[in-house]
Simulated assay, not measured.
Amino acid sequence: MPAIRRCTRAMDAAAVGSIVVEVMDAAHELTIHAPAGVVVEFVHCGDRASGAALPHA
């Protein structure tokens, strides 16, 4: 999560996009400040394997 926070701080204010972060549950969500055009979404994997809750592109 620290790396994601560093990346969002380095983004241009005009950046647009989305960031999907997989965490175990809501208790593991941290605030990520991103430019207004960047949506940050958390998905919860619970007991499933890492990557299981992420959308497939």
Results as ranks from 00 to 15, higher is better:
residue 1 M to W: 06
residue 1 M to Q: 07
residue 1 M to N: 03
residue 1 M to F: 08
residue 2 P to G: 04
residue 2 P to Y: 04
residue 3 A to T: 10
residue 3 A to M: 13
residue 4 I to A: 13
residue 4 I to S: 04
residue 4 I to C: 03
residue 5 R to G: 15
residue 6 R to P: 00
residue 8 T to P: 01
residue 8 T to W: 00
residue 9 R to H: 12
residue 9 R to D: 15
residue 10 A to D: 09
residue 10 A to C: 10
residue 10 A to R: 04
residue 10 A to T: 07
residue 10 A to M: 11
residue 10 A to N: 02
residue 11 M to R: 10
residue 11 M to E: 00
residue 12 D to F: 01
residue 12 D to T: 11
residue 13 A to D: 13
residue 13 A to S: 15
residue 13 A to R: 09
residue 13 A to C: 02
residue 13 A to N: 14
residue 14 A to V: 01
residue 14 A to K: 06
residue 14 A to Q: 05
residue 14 A to S: 14
residue 15 A to S: 03
residue 15 A to R: 00
residue 15 A to E: 02
residue 16 V to P: 00
residue 16 V to H: 10
residue 16 V to Y: 10
residue 17 G to P: 10
residue 17 G to N: 14
residue 17 G to Q: 12
residue 17 G to D: 08
residue 17 G to M: 08
residue 18 S to F: 09
residue 18 S to C: 11
residue 18 S to A: 15
residue 19 I to Q: 11
residue 19 I to M: 08
residue 19 I to L: 15
residue 20 V to P: 02
residue 20 V to T: 15
residue 21 V to N: 07
residue 21 V to K: 12
residue 21 V to R: 09
residue 21 V to C: 13
residue 22 E to A: 12
residue 22 E to P: 06
residue 22 E to Y: 06
residue 22 E to C: 12
residue 23 V to N: 11
residue 23 V to L: 08
residue 23 V to K: 05
residue 24 M to N: 06
residue 24 M to P: 01
residue 24 M to F: 10
residue 24 M to A: 12
residue 25 D to A: 11
residue 25 D to Y: 07
residue 26 A to C: 05
residue 26 A to Y: 00
residue 26 A to D: 01
residue 27 A to S: 08
residue 27 A to T: 12
residue 27 A to W: 04
residue 27 A to Y: 07
residue 27 A to E: 12
residue 27 A to K: 07
residue 28 H to A: 10
residue 28 H to M: 10
residue 28 H to S: 05
residue 28 H to Y: 07
residue 29 E to P: 13
residue 29 E to H: 14
residue 30 L to R: 14
residue 30 L to P: 00
residue 30 L to T: 06
residue 30 L to M: 09
residue 30 L to C: 00
residue 30 L to F: 04
residue 31 T to E: 15
residue 31 T to V: 14
residue 31 T to P: 13
residue 31 T to M: 06
residue 32 I to S: 02
residue 32 I to M: 10
residue 32 I to G: 10
residue 33 H to F: 07
residue 34 A to Q: 12
residue 34 A to N: 03
residue 35 P to C: 14
residue 36 A to L: 14
residue 36 A to Y: 02
residue 36 A to S: 09
residue 36 A to P: 12
residue 37 G to S: 06
residue 38 V to T: 01
residue 38 V to A: 06
residue 39 V to F: 08
residue 39 V to Q: 13
residue 39 V to Y: 05
residue 40 V to T: 09
residue 41 E to L: 01
residue 41 E to A: 00
residue 41 E to I: 01
residue 41 E to C: 06
residue 41 E to P: 03
residue 42 F to I: 04
residue 42 F to L: 09
residue 42 F to C: 01
residue 42 F to P: 06
residue 42 F to G: 08
residue 42 F to Y: 15
residue 43 V to Y: 05
residue 43 V to R: 04
residue 44 H to L: 05
residue 46 G to D: 09
residue 46 G to Q: 14
residue 46 G to I: 09
residue 47 D to T: 15
residue 47 D to E: 13
residue 48 R to S: 11
residue 48 R to M: 09
residue 49 A to V: 13
residue 50 S to H: 01
residue 50 S to F: 02
residue 50 S to V: 01
residue 51 G to P: 00
residue 51 G to E: 04
residue 51 G to H: 00
residue 51 G to C: 01
residue 52 A to M: 14
residue 52 A to T: 13
residue 53 A to T: 06
residue 53 A to W: 04
residue 54 L to T: 09
residue 55 P to E: 03
residue 55 P to Q: 03
residue 55 P to V: 05
residue 55 P to R: 12
residue 56 H to G: 04
residue 56 H to A: 08
residue 56 H to I: 07
residue 57 A to T: 08
residue 57 A to I: 04
residue 57 A to V: 05
residue 57 A to Y: 11
